[in-house]
Amino acid sequence: MIRSVIALALVTLFFYECKPTIKKELPLPKLGRFEIVKNGDGVDTVFHQIEDFKFVDQDSNWVTNETFSKGIYIADFFFTTCPDICPKMKAQMLRVYDSIGSEPSLMFLSHTIDPKHDSVAVLKDFSERLGVDGAKWKFVTGDKEVIYKLGQTSYMASIADQGAAGLTHSGRFFLIDKNRHIRGAYNGTDAEEVNVMIGDIKKLLNEN
């Protein structure tokens, strides 16, 4: 009798351990350097933010941080005549655009790193050929130095003009929240990573 009670207790204990644990989902991290600053008696963490910017989009409208302040956006760097990774990135970004682009608080921002060639008219033609909504997906151009500096310091993307060897740039997609924090960086040429990004976008949309 005692043995069967013990056995029953053990079995119960065993299955008790198997109860589904509800994992608390962690919010997406805020990437980049952060600083701890004094705030009254306590301290605050100041996270890395995208600096102020002002560019022109394919419809000759100004595009600034304000353009994206009501929601989240995905940023990348490209140029229209890039033959290697950009088409791959654009195909992947298009997949994102087609799957969750209809979310009202999600936008897309593609910076050209070849402003000499990629004028407003060229960007307009490019976006029309891609068949995307200009209010949703901004293709921007501006001063080359400014674009490169923003890419390097705000997005921490590697971008370089190697002269005769051409322009090289990071193939990453950056997920930015409404407070200008980088919440994710993904290899834009890798379908698997882009799938992860799509999941993270949904997460971030719920956070807002």
Partner: peptide, 15 residues
């Protein structure tokens, strides 16, 4: 395939 895609269908009006 980067531009013309693996399935040869190209990419919208670009390629």
């Amino acid at each position: 395939a980067n531009c013309h895609q693996k399935n040869g269908e190209g990419l919208r009006g670009l390629y």
